[in-house]
Amino acid sequence: MSSGSFSVDRELCRGTGLCQAMVPALFGRTDSGYPAADTGELADERSVVLADEVAECCPTGAIEVFRHDPVHE
């Protein structure tokens, strides 16, 4: 069971490579600077925190992080 997930809005994303520079393990290492996948699972709390930091640093606000509510899982 994952702790959360993220999604990338391709309309907003400009491929600045910030997410990949910050956490390549979550956003992949593509040559283009665009994240490898539009969505992804965040396995543990640590990943959720990291993804949150990236979302807050993204210059176009293209990343959204969802925290799964343990009560409903």
Binding site: T16, G17, L18, G33
Partner: peptide, 16 residues
């Protein structure tokens, strides 16, 4: 996809 506003960690934060 130009690099006029930089790339990576330090890309221009005032880009918008």
């Amino acid at each position: 996809r130009h690099l006029g506003l930089g790339h990576g960690l330090h890309n221009c934060l005032g880009a918008a």
